[in-house]
Computed example of a mutant assay.
Amino acid sequence: MHATIYHNPRCGTSRNTLALIRHAGIEPEVIEYLKDTPTREQLAALIRDAGIGVRDAIRAKEAKYTELGLDDPSLSDDALLDAMLAEPILINRPFVRTDRGVRLSRPSEAVLDILPPLPAPFTKEDGGVVAPK
């Protein structure tokens, strides 16, 4: 199975998701999206294919979110996409694409929907255990 993760190594959720993918026996393509920002088309496709809205794909907890006035509910999806592309830290993470679909893996266990079954329990950085389904 092929997998791609849009990863931020400074994010615990992203690190746990990457480790879960590897625990499932897959060595994914790792794209550090802060260095290698997806194109507008790629980002829009990830959001669409994950079945979420653009506002769900933006990190409202980032300081830039408020600084740029992105909390304005009248902003269009295009304006939000523009902001995420200009400031990639605003892209929620991690997005994962496999042959089985796309997920915004928050929490990290959401990636299990698009992976083969885990071979054994997995222990996250915080000590939480993810059991095979």
Rank of each mutant, 00 (worst) to 15 (best):
V30F: 07
E125S: 12
P132R: 13
S76V: 15
G51H: 10
T66M: 10
S105L: 12
A3T: 05
D113Y: 01
E67V: 02
M1A: 09
I114K: 08
P94V: 07
A63N: 14
H7C: 00
D77N: 13
P9G: 04
A45N: 06
E41I: 02
P119A: 11
A131Q: 15
D56M: 01
E27I: 08
F95M: 08
V30Y: 11
T13N: 10
S105G: 11
I52L: 02
D78E: 15
E109F: 05
A44G: 00
T17A: 09
G127S: 00
A120Y: 12
P9T: 00
A45H: 04
P107S: 04
G53C: 02
L18I: 04
L81I: 12
N16E: 12
D71N: 13
A19P: 03
S74A: 15
I5N: 00
R55G: 02
K61W: 09
E87T: 15
Q42H: 07
D36V: 12
A86V: 10
N8V: 03
I114F: 07
G127R: 01
G53H: 03
S76R: 15
M84G: 06
E41W: 08
A83R: 11
G53M: 01
S14Q: 06
I5E: 00
A110T: 13
S74K: 14
V111W: 02
V129L: 06
P116I: 12
L43I: 07
I31W: 01
N8E: 14
E125K: 09
V102T: 01
D99A: 06
Q42Y: 04
P121N: 00
R97M: 00
D78W: 12
R48Y: 08
V102I: 09
K61H: 13
A50F: 02
H7L: 02
P117E: 13
A79P: 13
P132K: 12
L34N: 04
G101R: 10
Q42G: 04
A60I: 14
G51R: 08
A63Y: 13
V129Q: 01
L118N: 01
A131M: 15
D126V: 15
A3C: 05
L80T: 13
E41C: 00
E32W: 01
T17W: 10
I114E: 03
Y6V: 02
D36S: 06
R59C: 01
A19C: 06
I47A: 08
A24Q: 00
C11G: 06
K133M: 05
V111T: 08
A44T: 04
T4K: 14
V111R: 01
E62N: 05
A44C: 03
V130Q: 12
L68C: 10
D49G: 01
T17V: 11
A79F: 12
S14D: 14
L85K: 01
R40F: 08
Y6D: 03
E27M: 06
T37C: 12
K133L: 10
V130G: 08
D77Q: 02
E67S: 04
P117K: 11
L20M: 05
A63D: 08
Y33E: 05
A57Q: 03
A120W: 02
S74D: 13
K64S: 09
T37K: 09
K64L: 15
V30L: 07
S14Y: 08
I114N: 03
L80P: 03
Q42S: 07
P28Y: 14
L104G: 04
L81W: 01
N92P: 09
V102Y: 11
L68S: 14
G69P: 11
G127L: 00
I26K: 07
R55F: 02
D77F: 03
